[in-house]
Amino acid sequence: MSNARTNILSRLCQSSIQETPPQPSPYQGREQEKDDWDTAERVRRFTERMEAVRAEIHHASRTDWLDVLAEICKAKGLNNLLVAAETEWGSAIHAQAQRFPALKTYQQPIETWKSELFYGIDAAFTGTRGGIAETGTLILWPDAHEPRTMSLVPPIHIALLETDKLYTTFAEAMQAEGWVETGMPTNALLVSGPSKSADIEQTLAYGVHGPKELVVILV
């Protein structure tokens, strides 16, 4: 196999004959006005884009977001909710557990409870690292407390996004947070709505393999 590596690289090196191409500049494609979006405009655009792909947006404050979440759980008739106990938001939910459906936690590796995760969880709640206004996007960096499958396997994903972490563009988010400098996590995700497909007759259908519903609480 190392032969393949040597052969491919030597073929490529032999033909490095092209003139230097034009250098990309990271911000060429952006409209200037986008830099000026204030928080209200970012929230407006984010909401508009998310709702266009059937995500549910709820506005809340730091004092009443638990009420909003409790309301959502009730409206959806959830029997249980998967929530991390260790995160800031998760611990607040666990502290008032009596207001919510049965709270589940992701304590063990997936292998030990795969069946329950796949077939027994109604919804998962996670925080987010930030959002992107231009495209209506959540930025997730899953970790040991909120693993990757939380935003993927249960049929409903409820995510909390703080409006002051809403960036205008993906490029801005990546740069402002110094993704390259801090190093990339195991898995970084952009999520822009519930799972969907247009593979049959180019007609949109929601809930293919990921969550059928995406609910965003903006705080």
Binding site: P26, T137, A171, P185, T186, N187, L190, S192
Partner: peptide
Amino acid sequence: KLSDVPPLLSILTRSATGQPITTYFNMISS
């Protein structure tokens, strides 16, 4: 570079299916 990704992602999804972005953009590093 990582900063090469946002413009390519934007023009890819818009050219391919006319979406501003796809539902998932999955970045795997380990």
